[in-house]
Design a protein around this nucleic acid. Structure first.
Lengths: 247, 247
DNA sequence: CTTGATTCAGTTGTAGGATGATATGTATCA
DNA sequence: TGATACATATCATCCTACAACTGAATCAAG
């Protein structure tokens, strides 16, 4: 009883299709956490593909932390909370709702990180941050380049916290946002989405130099809220908090 | 000229090892974006594994968006900005005893999330949080069980923010901490690392019920700082902030 | 009946070859 | 010169076989 895999216009490879199918079944709850998947043999028959293809699909799901395979036993669906890795697919970023959530998360992470960085930054951190700032405000306002510099600026601040987890997480979120913007420009090239407000960055940098955590946090918060607005995302009840100084 | 793959204590599967090896080469810049990888044949000879193994490794890297394979041509290293998805692997983060950093990140995420949750929580969220709270303070203080309930409590709060990214990130961080504790107990079984302070949790819950963001944030911050201390982690300059009320 | 070791079937992990599909370069020819 | 056909290289898929491991059934000994 072969099952037709969605053969859409996409020329996606077979393993990807199989993985997507299983992934949907898991997300939709048809395959509850803890249940065992059919054997590779059965899956290969069900989908009408070779066992190799099934294996690659399962390897992918396993890398995503959705399932766990035990030799000699089988493959089991994992609960979301026990997944060992986070993965956000590019597909999931194409609507503004997600952008909103991403910016919200970014605001939380970066605001406090800026405060930490203000306390802990060393001279080499300040130098690196300054370099990114210069690149950003530099001669040419080449779009991609200035966005790169912008992200570098934020990553360097995260690095200055001395906490590698924070650095990793912020890099991750920033990269997601960059991709979203990149994609948005492709679909709507007229709209200039470049968001490089040098003034806001300078304020952050000055607070870091001064070693003032509260000022750094406030400046970063204001900056991210502003950045969100400039790309058309309104942070819902952005918890103005002590952002009273807002823009 | 076979190349020894790092055969560490871990019994990781071969595809994972190959993928990790290539991944490091890419991240370290030895393989620049645009570069073509050796053919599957060459890689299988180089590592002394079958092509199937190489294929699964490449499939994994491709799923992570690090490389792109074109049929009939080869596999190419992608630049970070053209990656279609990004992943944070738990394995890559647990190199040392960085509980400190984990707790610091957790503090940042959860404190603000608690504030958001206080504003947005619905009745069903409160019910779920209450249920976890009851399980925690319930009859039996079975270690694993109460830890599960503890984590559930925190995850439910994250869910109440309505931001799936926040939920994902906090779940991830909590899971990492749980594993670290689990591992620590294995190596040091004498030390009782169970950390379930019901009182602190109750205070958080009450703030959520009251819909008071500031109180929720303060309570959560105090709780996580306390939790860190109870497992022997001193948050360095935990940025007491408005946590003046701390224990 | 209980207990323990052994065997056996089932499943994933790995190996290696064969064939199809696709892109690229090369040689031939008008 | 330009276009076409061919040859080659590579990935994609399929196939079979075996190794490693697990869990349960079987069976013998007490």
């Amino acid at each position: 009883m072969k099952q037709r895999l969605a053969a859409i216009g996409t020329v996606e490879a077979l393993p990807h299709r199989v993985a997507a199918f299983l992934s949907r079944e898991i997300d939709s709850g048809e395959l509850n956490p803890g249940t065992r998947l059919p054997t590779e043999q059965q899956l290969s028959e069900k989908f009408g593909v070779s066992r190799n293809v099934v294996r690659e699909a399962i390897a992918q799901l396993r890398a995503d932390g959705m399932i766990e395979a035990r030799q000699g036993v089988g493959a089991f669906v994992l609960a979301p909370e026990q997944r060992a890795s986070i993965r956000i697919d590019g597909e999931a970023l194409k609507d503004t709702e997600n952008m909103e959530r991403l910016f919200e998360l970014r605001c939380i992470l970066e605001a406090e990180s800026a405060a930490l960085a203000a306390e802990r930054r060393g001279q080499e951190h300040l130098d690196a941050i300054k370099a990114a700032l210069d690149r950003m405000s530099g001669e040419e306002r080449w779009e991609e380049g200035s966005i790169d510099a912008d992200l570098l600026f934020h990553r360097e601040i995260a690095r200055a916290t001395g906490n590698s987890y924070i650095h990793t997480f912020i890099s991750f979120v920033c990269e997601q946002i960059r991709r979203s913007i990149h994609y948005a420009r492709l679909t709507n090239p007229l709209h200039d989405l470049v968001d490089v407000n040098v003034g806001e960055h300078v304020r952050i940098y000055e607070a870091l130099v001064a070693g003032d955590p509260k000022a750094a946090e406030a400046a970063m918060r204001a900056h991210i809220i502003g950045a969100a607005e400039r790309v058309g995302v309104k942070l819902p009840a952005a918890r103005a908090k002590h952002t009273g100084k807002g823009k």
